[in-house]
Design a protein around this nucleic acid. Sequence first.
DNA 1: CATGAATGAGCTTTCATTCAT
DNA 2: GATGAATGAAAGCTCATTCAT
Lengths: 226, 226, 226, 226
Amino acid sequence: MPNSISPPPTKPKRERRKEARPAELLAAALHLFVEKGYAATKSEEVAKLAGVSKGTLFLYFSSKEELFKAVVRENISNRFTEISKLWDNYEGSSTDLLRMGLRVWWERIGSTKASGITKLMISEENNFPELAAFYHEEVARPIHTLLEKVLQLGIDKGEFRPMDVQQGIYLILAPMLYLVIRKHSPITYALKNNPMDADAFIKAQIDNILYGLSLHPPTKAATPSP
Amino acid sequence: MPNSISPPPTKPKRERRKEARPAELLAAALHLFVEKGYAATKSEEVAKLAGVSKGTLFLYFSSKEELFKAVVRENISNRFTEISKLWDNYEGSSTDLLRMGLRVWWERIGSTKASGITKLMISEENNFPELAAFYHEEVARPIHTLLEKVLQLGIDKGEFRPMDVQQGIYLILAPMLYLVIRKHSPITYALKNNPMDADAFIKAQIDNILYGLSLHPPTKAATPSP
Amino acid sequence: MPNSISPPPTKPKRERRKEARPAELLAAALHLFVEKGYAATKSEEVAKLAGVSKGTLFLYFSSKEELFKAVVRENISNRFTEISKLWDNYEGSSTDLLRMGLRVWWERIGSTKASGITKLMISEENNFPELAAFYHEEVARPIHTLLEKVLQLGIDKGEFRPMDVQQGIYLILAPMLYLVIRKHSPITYALKNNPMDADAFIKAQIDNILYGLSLHPPTKAATPSP
Amino acid sequence: MPNSISPPPTKPKRERRKEARPAELLAAALHLFVEKGYAATKSEEVAKLAGVSKGTLFLYFSSKEELFKAVVRENISNRFTEISKLWDNYEGSSTDLLRMGLRVWWERIGSTKASGITKLMISEENNFPELAAFYHEEVARPIHTLLEKVLQLGIDKGEFRPMDVQQGIYLILAPMLYLVIRKHSPITYALKNNPMDADAFIKAQIDNILYGLSLHPPTKAATPSP
DNA sequence: CATGAATGAGCTTTCATTCAT
DNA sequence: GATGAATGAAAGCTCATTCAT
């Protein structure tokens, strides 16, 4: 080591992306937290997966808890607001909005690692009440509000039957949560001979929901057309 | 506290209650595991909640892991077979069977602490693959089979429309899982101004499910009657 | 002791051997201590092997340490004094005395479990210095003294050559200790294709010792005659 | 303590000495294991004696058992092969080889802490059968083989009388083991007014052995010259 | 800034010992 | 006297966190 006479010649420029570090750590942490759970994920593993040393992790996040919180925060707000705009600006029928909306949700969030956050929150909400509150405020409530608006609009426009909107919301949320949980359940996947087909699932659920919500259910749509 | 007329019962330390211990420990463990998760529950806490010392816990369960497994097993198989008999012997219409079945499930399992097991398994399946397999075999699969039979029978009898039975099963499972998760989610409960009404939820879900499943949906049933 | 008012009424008939209990416990303890070592022997095991409960063990011995001490004491003094008489009263030649003495020692002590005590003391003397001192006083020193006398007598009688008696003692002790250690070494026994033949060993060692000790070694004796 | 002229060196906590740690820990462990036995030595003590914390110990040795094994291995194989070369390449008479060999053994191994390993193995072989097998294979057997060769050569060359070589080996091993055990027996040393003189002991033993082994024992050599 | 060796609080588990029955 | 269920101090080991380099 001391006998490297000449200084490392090739460009000390482009000082490797310092800015990227936190993002890499968050990505690694998301992956592992989702994969193994909070407690079973060792901070050293996260660092290694991010390609840095243990010490560096704590340089950017003062504790494992803070890292966890950052992971949750990171994977929630941003992506979501973007999507909700789609809903806000939609011009078509409420029926189409629901169909489109859930599909887009699945493509952009549900099918990605980010949806693992939901499972994480379910598991850890008791250990991170403050974070759960944050999640509730930033994710659960906005979704509720959004769906509420959509449903109310559909009712007002005469597309949907009059209903307890709250229950209508659950009608939509429940299957999506189910889908997310199954997606992140390796055992279920591994053991079942027929792993779940997310697209078919979503279609069937939407059909059913709309069938139930609509005043005069279009008989065709309700019948699954393979 | 003030109205404790009788003097403090001077609870005798070192009570010998060999028969009762395992059940007490399992109850305590179920409570804490559901409340805080597996990793965050310290074995000494479980012992204390069960009114015994740390050592006693290990007298009955050789390790924390074994305790966890016992908790899962204890709250599953027994209770479960009992219920599935109800379904098997049912004589009425498939529609009624579904209504009745889910209500009974809620009363006997869903609304009790035992349903916390489901949430536990979702959270910990990555850490206990072997146990997850057990759960899958003992619980998930039987439920699937049961629902499959019910749905197929309804289709054969002309009560339900022809459908992809697999998706029909999800139609039923998803809301029940959602209900269970919300039940064990203190934050959701605490924050919402309107905590969930399980009965209303179940009714609404069943109505919707049946509405979608049935050939000629009775328009009345589908309309929530407040 | 002072409060023994009435004299022991002499057997309220065959009251199942209360007197035997300590002896049984000591025997069990000796066996296990020798077999597995002090620390690796659990007091419950000792009790079980003695056919009593854990509590009973502590009824007779106030602690595991006391039990250990009792085991050592029990297996030392008694047996030994008996043997040393043989030596004291011997009338024949010193050569024969040595031959006979070691053989008897092997038969009565060396080949029995009691010799495990020696190995135990070697292992535990640091943890039980007081006991080691006792052992030294009760066993090691008397043996030394005995051998010293024998050797000195042989020298005085002109049977043995003049020598440093201390070294002469070691000449005798070393092989006997070696024999005892090997006897209690299961691994050595298990692995060797040719397990040790104690009689041959003793004979060879005595021959050698006597050959070295004697003034005019009989050339025949030195040659092993199978 | 009073004559420490220089001020307390203010030893820096948290020294980084990756290279040196294992050796320091092994030395500490050897000392304590030999001193107190395996079970009675707490891992924290070992760490403290090595000047590190408990955690550091487990950084280098995955368990107490592994530490023990490392201690045994460390103090055996290395040192041992080195010595056996001396024997292999020896050119002189078998008599001289034995004299020289045992002296060198004593200087390089017997008199050092490393010989405590032998005592350790005797004490712990029941608890570590696998390790005992290793020791047997790596140490006991090679020694046997070595001595066997030496004795057989001496016989073939006519230096030694014909004999049962196996017994001849014991003739040599027994006193050396005795010496090692006494060396590590503080009580024996403390209580005796005349602590053992290893050199005298070895000389006396060798003389005796050679006297017994040789065809025409030189009468002078047999007589101890003070 | 980055590293990774070092730390030690904290957790599981064991087992000698106690004591209600 | 016996028993064995209950106890809790003590030991091994983990891993988030620190800090010398």
